[in-house]
Design a protein around this nucleic acid. Structure first.
Lengths: 395, 395
DNA sequence: AAATAGTTTTTAAAAAAAATAGAAAGTATT
DNA sequence: AATACTTTCTATTTTTTTTAAAAACTATTT
């Protein structure tokens, strides 16, 4: 039987604040949690007793008595397993509570197709990784997983992939198999969480995170928290009717943003143009390997390869058109461009800005900032870890 | 100097709950406010002492001891002035706390153009109406105003109209002139508030309200509260790039929803088609008066006039396309079609549904209900009154 | 360089609110 | 009619917040 400690909720809250802010004073914690100082004091003391928190040093002077700072105690060995799934590759890493890498990240090729073996392969990969880490199960707070598809985080199901778990939800199935609490969410939501807690969106209330990857995703932060809509599927950005193109999308409709802006499409186009004689710095590697990895395409664009830049600019313009819609409807403080595509960085900015100039009411456009993620390659793993911190019970 | 009573915030909260729910028991209030029963008991008693609340009767049995119900005391004469401004006409009414009409509604023609006299005329109209009501100023809790334009409710300014109030905000200016607290907000937001508190959206968390009027507006309810975006201008639905039409919108862009779906455009089209020989039940009145009032057009559509129905259906289809975008991004529980246009009722439904079938991922479309407002003609006035209740200080 | 005024944190005491337990009032069943 | 069961209402205890006071530190002035 699990014993629930006194002030259990507040304890969780305090640990979270330490996780996001590193070092904090009692006064800061009181303000962050909207709880009184005496209560904070006793609760922090109980956390110190349990080894979760330790006294650190005096805060720099602000004119009066210097406050004591506290931080999470790395001696208390607690870890989170973070998993980032995409259409082709699944990555995993183990962090400690200070977000230091405890076990080096590993990846496996795992094509997201709906066959029963997918779940088995996925589970086996995680089981093996965790067991090789040699971390005692009791020290693992949970496994956080970001994955594409229609994910309902609360119910713990993915309506698009990993469906073959019998009559239990994916979350329950994995929790049982791995022996640790598992939390799943949509990849874009998880990335948005990372941007909110550690990235450009830190401490902001209304932030939208556009995830450029195999598809185009959207993670929404509304009133300072992840927004999922009434049944959990908000942010289905990639299938809004926008493009004039006549190509049919995988969803069966025409005009979807995804058809013209996902990385898959961009790479396809780059290959097609090289096939028909377009010259590019990517040519050599392409003809040699017969394939063109996404990262190579993105780096080519970043270093100014005209072919890659042109393809990426076209996509970026459409993304900008989509962002215009978002700006009109949501009036966000900030839109962050994140996900794998963000590696190409600034190349995106000019065409996006151009589209916004064309499609946005200037008055509204002024109210929203657009930025490229600084977290980008790591964002999904970081967000997956955050998912655990947000939901696990510290013991 | 104003004396602030003990439990001032809780008292306000309780009065609001009574306003929205008519009769309530102590237990219900405790649950609604997340406050303890003893605290609720003493606070309700203080409200009874002040004459705001009265004991009513025993609630119907639920198996145990029957609870006492309480409700607002109509003896305590407190009133709200509700104002609904649109592009051409401004309406005003005075309600009591039970939303009974205290002074019959009146309207005046007031074209929204930006000239200094507009504010003067508007102020004079309200002053005159209020003074003729012969209600003592102290009994008026406030004036709530819903108006088109880029309204920042917090700052109390409208960036589109009523700008000539010198260096004070419109809200402050009117408060000073009328001698009672004034609260302003965007018309669509105010309608959404009405739908949330009294209409189809009652007790729901994620509701979008599409306001079909001179333009197309959007009021958003997110997490059970009005959502305004980070700087107050969320829901600028009518200027998202959607339509293929090449007509230039008043905002200077092409493809705006508003260009093809506002009531102005619909009426214009009806007139044009009659001019070129289209037959319609509206013909007689049109040729006689040389003009076609909106309401007549809407009623013609409602009663099946083919010309009106056809024009309205075309607009409704585009509105449905816009709603598809909203469904993808927001995943709302409910979309309410409200505003003046809602008078035409069911005529909208079929084309909207058709557009949703065409542009929405079926899986997502299933999660959102679409309904026609039942409050429609009164929604804006009711919402304007609600604005006062939400923000005023009961004294 | 010591004294003092001004900050801010921390601890202690008082006040307020919530949680708990018990009494009262009603319903349904035997 | 009596008993068992619900639910509301009231009183008591516990928890939490508010307020006040003390402690720790900085900066300025004499």
């Amino acid at each position: 039987m699990t014993v629930i400690k006194k002030h259990h909720l507040l304890r969780k809250d305090l640990i979270k604040h330490f996780y996001y802010n590193k070092r904090l004073t009692l006064t800061e914690l009181s303000k962050l949690t909207h709880k009184s100082l005496p209560l904070i004091t006793t609760t922090v003391n109980s956390l110190i007793e349990d080894g979760y928190v330790m006294e650190h040093e005096l805060a720099p002077s602000t004119g009066g008595r210097r406050a004591l700072t506290f931080l999470l105690n790395s001696q208390k060995q607690r870890y989170v397993v973070a998993v980032a799934v995409d259409q082709m590759v699944t990555q995993v890493v183990i962090y400690d509570l200070l977000n230091k890498v405890k076990m080096a990240p590993e990846a496996t090729e795992l094509l997201l197709v709906n066959e029963p073996v997918l779940v088995d392969k996925f589970t086996a990969f995680l089981k093996d990784y965790i067991s090789r880490s040699e971390i005692p199960i009791a020290q693992i707070l949970g496994v956080g997983i970001g994955m594409p598809g229609f994910v309902n985080a609360e119910q713990g199901v993915n309506h698009s992939f990993f469906k073959s778990t019998g009559d239990v939800s994916l979350k329950k199935y994995l929790t049982r198999e791995l022996g640790v609490p598992v939390f799943i969410d949509n990849d874009s939501s998880v990335i948005a969480l990372a941007e909110l807690k550690f990235g450009t969106g830190k401490n902001l209330k209304d932030v939208l995170v556009v995830n450029v990857g195999w598809g185009i995703g959207l993670g929404m932060i509304v009133n300072g928290a992840l927004f999922r809509g009434h049944s959990g599927y908000a942010g289905e950005f990639s299938h809004i009717p926008l493009s004039q193109s006549n190509k049919i999308c995988s969803c069966g409709k025409r005009g979807c943003l995804e058809v013209d802006t996902s990385l898959v499409v961009m790479v396809e186009r780059a290959k097609a143009q090289m096939d028909t004689g377009g010259s590019s710095s990517m040519e050599l590697s392409y003809t040699k390997n017969g394939d063109l990895p996404v990262d190579q395409f993105l780096h080519a664009a970043k270093s100014g390869d005209p072919l890659a830049v042109s393809i990426l600019s076209d996509a970026a313009f459409l993304i900008g058109k989509g962002m215009s819609t978002l700006i009109h409807i949501m009036n966000p403080k900030l839109i962050v461009l994140s996900g794998r595509g963000a590696i190409a960085g600034k190349i995106f900015m000019a065409p996006i800005q151009q589209a916004i100039n064309e499609f946005c009411i200037p008055w509204l456009a002024e109210q929203t900032e657009i930025q490229i993620s600084t977290l980008a390659p790591e964002a999904e793993l970081l967000g997956a870890a955050t998912l655990v911190i947000e939901n696990c019970n510290f013991n």
